[in-house]
Design a protein around this nucleic acid. Structure first.
Lengths: 337, 337
DNA sequence: AGTTAGCACTGTCAAGAGATGAGTGCTAAA
DNA sequence: TTTAGCACTCATCTCTTGACAGTGCTAACT
């Protein structure tokens, strides 16, 4: 159990280090805290023994450890409510009637990365839970048609289908009717299963078996629906953080961002809460000097995703966390149009 | 006019510098060129006076100037034909039947950036020249429909349209018929013009004027067609180039890549030829230590674009140029399916 | 018992001094 | 025209040094 003063010392160490990126010495704190530097040093020694802070070398000031950051986020930090930030900026993005949804998300993320000076990621919203509303096959040339799938939320996916020249148009129409019948209102996530099941049902087996190409096109269009799209912005913000003054680190980081392995970093969990993952808690090696703060959001019952901020472990949690919460809470406005 | 030996010296300077990124001294060349270092020094002095090479400081070896690189690319370089590279890798990407075109381009660009170790950009193909094949309005909810536009090449764009509850379905059908009639076979680039013209024609004026929302949705769907999409890959390759060992440069570069200002760098010209832009020839300030090599390509008569490689001015032109040409020449295979 | 002053000690960092070496230009001779 | 030779110039590396920002520990104070 920490004493009041120890808590305070830890809090100030974290906040000072977050601000300056310099190890914090006892004299600095003694100026803030009516105690002599020697007293502070004693507390620091205790905090170090307990694993909340560390030294960078034997005679350096102290730096928060991962455990220290966690304790700070969970126990010590008070979330700023009076932002020095203009929240109306965010509201404006969401209230623009005319913007397509994807663009709005992208813009909101841009804004978030500007406000925080960190990298931001938005995952989804995944269309897995939306349902098939209509399927069409539009002939384009003699041999090529476009398969369209439209969901109950108005998403569209398309896929080219090459059909042997002279395929019977009437028959295609019938096939489409059957597909529409079978798949209407089926959630995207279940289409594949449903489709495989139906193919083996007697009544349409004959009709379809000769033309596997359509089925394949279908399945591909649907997998594309299910793919989680993500929006990554503000990568270069990281380059201004002193922890990335080392080129080797920069390379590692940029390689990671470029590899599109983002999904390994963010859980697509349905949990409702905020997750803070600090340093080596991140599985991804390139991210082991970084912290990730993530919050799930829901545009509506069916479309859910996650937004996250990636920064150095020395992140302004105090500012990022409430900001992220605010943003996630207001994402649903995108659909209230 | 340069003597044979001077040409040779310049060629070797460029090639050695490209390889090692170290200024080239006279002794290095005298080993390659059965002449004494003093002789080489005399030639170097001449080349320097003519502006083909430079010193980094008074007693350093020589480095090619921008003029020197140009002369090299245009006069001295012989394009490698026997690659140490497996061109079949590229062919494989293009021959994969099942891959959607966008994915194929992306993958080809990925490959190119791996083969060259530079950053690659693909612009387009722009759909501006393709023609409207079919327009549809699919109702999704009471108040929202999806507008679909399909081109003669099978591209699809969609746009949500909010309609007042209770809009007459019959009438919508009629409107769509009219649109299809008006716009059938009109090139995307001309749709906006055509639409504005037709709106003022007597026969449909009444029908449409009350519902500007549909028109607007149309226009937006079409502008999205016309937007040139681009593919940017291998940004982080640049971080391994010694010219980017300076963090400030890295920041500038990454900011540029992130800003999506790529269009300022690449001309979307219809010219047939290869363009090499070296150093300060690039208008973009962040790119003034870089060279850009670009080549136009055509998937077919209607879909054209540009592919480019961005690297330091000290670029392996000898390898990049023929590789880029090869790739551009084979892009059309994407459509021969 | 908790707090503080004082002091010896430790590691980092920046500045300066040499030493080294790769390169040059120039001159005179082959 | 080419080459050998020499003096000279920078950049770069290493080493030393002093300043400085910290620490831990001990003994004294409240």
């Amino acid at each position: 159990m920490l004493t009041n003063r120890q808590n305070l010392v830890l809090k100030l160490i974290v906040e000072s280090f977050v601000k300056t990126a310099e190890p914090v010495g006892s004299r600095t704190l003694s100026k803030l805290l009516d105690f002599s530097s020697a007293t502070i040093r004693n507390d620091m020694a205790d905090l170090e023994e307990l694993g909340y802070i560390e030294k960078t070398h034997s005679s350096s000031g102290r730096v928060p450890s991962e455990k220290g950051y966690h304790y700070y986020v969970e126990e010590l930090m008070q979330e700023t409510t009076d932002f020095d930030i203009d929240l109306t900026l965010i509201d404006e993005v969401f209230s623009n009637q005319n913007m397509p949804r994807d663009d709005a998300i992208e813009q909101a993320m841009n804004l978030l990365s500007q406000l925080t000076n960190y990298t931001t990621i938005a995952l989804g919203p995944s269309a897995r839970n939306s349902k098939v509303k209509k399927i069409e096959l539009v002939p384009v040339t003699n041999t090529m048609s476009v398969l369209l799938v439209i969901t109950n939320l108005g998403h569209v996916e398309s896929k080219h289908v090459n059909l042997p020249d002279g395929t019977d148009a009437e028959e295609l129409t019938r096939i489409m009717e059957i597909f529409n019948e079978i798949l209407y209102d089926v959630p995207i996530a279940q289409v594949s299963e449903k489709l495989h099941y139906e193919i083996n049902q007697e009544k349409i087996k004959d009709l379809l078996s000769y033309n596997r190409r359509i089925i394949e096109a279908f399945l591909e269009a649907f997998t594309r629906f299910a793919q989680s799209k993500f929006y990554l912005t503000g990568q270069s913000n990281m380059l201004y953080q002193p922890e990335f003054s080392d080129l080797e680190r920069v390379r590692e980081l940029m390689n990671f961002f470029e590899k599109n392995d983002i999904l390994k970093l963010i859980d697509h969990s349905d949990s409702t809460g905020l997750t803070v993952r600090i340093g080596r808690e991140n599985q991804v090696t390139a991210m082991q000097n970084c912290s990730v703060v993530m919050v799930p959001y829901a545009l509506n019952e069916e479309e859910k995703g996650t937004i996250a901020v990636v920064g150095p472990t020395r992140m302004e949690y105090q500012k990022v966390i409430p900001l992220l919460k605010y943003l996630a809470a207001h994402m649903s406005k995108l659909y209230k149009k």
